[in-house]
Design a protein around this nucleic acid. Sequence first.
DNA 1: GCGGATCAC
DNA 2: TATGGTGATCCGC
Length: 816
Amino acid sequence: MDSTKKSDAILSKEGFQFRMELNDNKAGMEGLDKEKINKIIMEATKGSRFYENELKKDHQVNHRIEKMMQQKTQITSLQLKKAQLQVDKLVLELEESRDLSHVIVHIDMDAFYAAVEMRDNPELRDKPMAVGSMSMLVREILAEYDLNFLPLSLDEAYIDLTEHLKERLNWPKGKRTYFLRTDNITENGREEHIKEVAESSLPVHSISPVLFEDNTLHANEDNAKQNTPSLAEHSIIFGISVEEAVKEIRFRIEQKTTLTASAGIAPNMMLAKVCSDKNKPNGQFRILPNRQDVMDFIKDLPIRKVPGIGRVTEKMLKALGITTCTEIYQQRVLLTLLFSESSWHNFLNISLGLGSTHIEKDGERKSMSTERTFSEISVSSEQYTLCQELCHDLAQDLLKEGLKGKTVILKLKNVNFEVKSRACTVLSAISTEEEIFAVAKELLRVEIEMASPHPLRLRLMGVRVSSFLNEEEKKHHQKSILNFLQASKVARTLSPLPPEKLEPRQCNILPLTSHGESFFNKKRAEMQQNRELLRDDTANQQKIPSLRTLETTGQETNGEREVEKSTKSQILTCPICFQKQETSNLETFNRHIDKCLVGVCEDPNVQIQHKKEELPMLKKSNINHASTSDDKKKNLEVLHINKVNKLVLDCDDYSSNSNAESVTSIAVECKQGIERGSKESDRPSAIAINMCYLQNDSVLPVSETQQPCTSGTLEDTVLICPVCNLEQKTTSLALFNRHVDMCLNKGIIQKLTEESTDPDGNDNAANAQSAGSLRRGQQNINITVRTKRPGLISQQPASKKAKAISSRNTIDKFFK
DNA sequence: GCGGATCAC
DNA sequence: TATGGTGATCCGC
């Protein structure tokens, strides 16, 4: 395939800019030999998988554009009239609300140019620079001007100087005077200083700056030279104006970091950001706070300069003949008809030079993830191992911020650079490696099986956790389990489960209830009803089946240890029908559980033996996979099925305890594809996930504020089983939990089988678990309503997340 | 809620 | 030589 021809066709015939081409509309790219660079890129990438994928993505964008153009041809004059009224009404409202009273400054470190300098100066290349993040300059400089300053990333921040400037008017000279250390201002001063810093790796408080040396002043910053504050021999005094204040900030930043910064001063964040680019590097630009100046600035501004307008949006607008902000305004009516409400609102704001006028602190983090790129990995066992490593890393990060989330998203990129993500939401917030891995592993397993018999050829894998508990929910979940257990004696009211239906693709950890309490109440009710039976069953309960530990059946061959050999039969006990199952692999066993869950369990009195002929479609289970090297053995530990069969409750108090040897198995219902129409009907309907918790023999409910005490005892505490509601004559939590386990295993699963058929006649095991969700169309406070952006504020997100500022990334990394 | 896509840095 | 990581948001479904 001749890729060049193809892209040429795109370029010439359709007149679109191909995505691989260098686009120099963004900042700092001016003056580069675009044509030459494009040629290099083309030559270097032609025929590569990456290139082909770029081409494919480009076609998709072109297709979008074609669709849009098609849509455009069908617009009626009536629609236009109506839209005209609508959009002009909004324009009036926006104009009325225009607020020019704030002085917003966007500060941007000139990292790119520093990098260039490093490149051009080989001696500097390997020397770490004295740099910190903007959040550091937070603390040390910016906060002096605006306590609520907003670090966007490592090298960007917003400050609102409005208040500072009022105070500054009354500041004496002394408060605006800064001293230069002159002893280092020599030819080699800077370099030597960098050396010092490298050796001390301490923050530098008085660095010899090169701020006013000719070689740091760019031609486009003549004004800086002209307006240089009065420079005494060793001191520099800044004035009281906005410009002076911003120069002072930039000066101090350079003193501290040896890096120059650029700044934009404007009445709102959008404009400030755009104009910090105007006199980059080492310069600043101000838009005066009056409408005319704002509109003059906006007039010929290429849309791509505006934050939020990326490559694709630029291309789409270009297809409509829009390349500048003025043209947005001219085409505003058309835009309302071709774009979503939030999009055209955003466009309109841009075209009027409007943006957010107050800097808001970071909202709460919404997700956390970790991902890794690697050379091709196609062996599933390695993929699982990698997945677990990612979960491990992510769990550590989550722990650092004390976060627990309900949605796990697995991201995969294959060797063709095709990216896909698969998500699964559980009803109980999770955070540990084992918990996340249990879900991620299952998502991965499904993908591996879908691809079978071909391997997944991956080049990237990522794991993300989102849907964090909010403060309210955290509090709710932090109730001490002991309080809970003691209170359970009183809580006896019953709350029957409504017939409910799960949202599609919801993935639930059994048993699912919206509140632990109602769950236990239900259990108690059952126990009450079956008191007699249970008494008879006491002996049986002692034998209540657990998923037996799968003995390590594989031999150590070639340094590999097979955790499970599909060819070797295991005796497993179904947690639903409690019958022993002789199966050749976990897949078979899981299918049996699925059947039981959906209520088509075979006669429980008959020992079931799945034979391979009965299930011809079975694939080798990937749940337990072999590690490829001994040093990965630890990963295998969690893949063992435990002695103890454990159901994790929908209650965060039941957090896992990670220091034990045995593993807990949790049935997870991944209802992917069900009720989603024929497209996805080939997905597995129900999957019993073998969740692998590293735990002691029992799961002990642990309050988040308590130390795990699984094997401990509780003196002077009366333990009452929340299921049978009977006082347990033990102070050993392990024994107590064992008792609860037994109660649970019997009762819950019976309940599940009872409720596993929904009224619509769709057998669906998950129905029984969906205490918190409702059938589509029903009222539910949890229903998410897709809201359009409420305000007319710029679409620019209030902030980037703090993680970007964490130790994970440093500017010096950028220079490598 | 899911998944793909876009955007920023 | 081979093409990054993290996080947010939007939008159609």
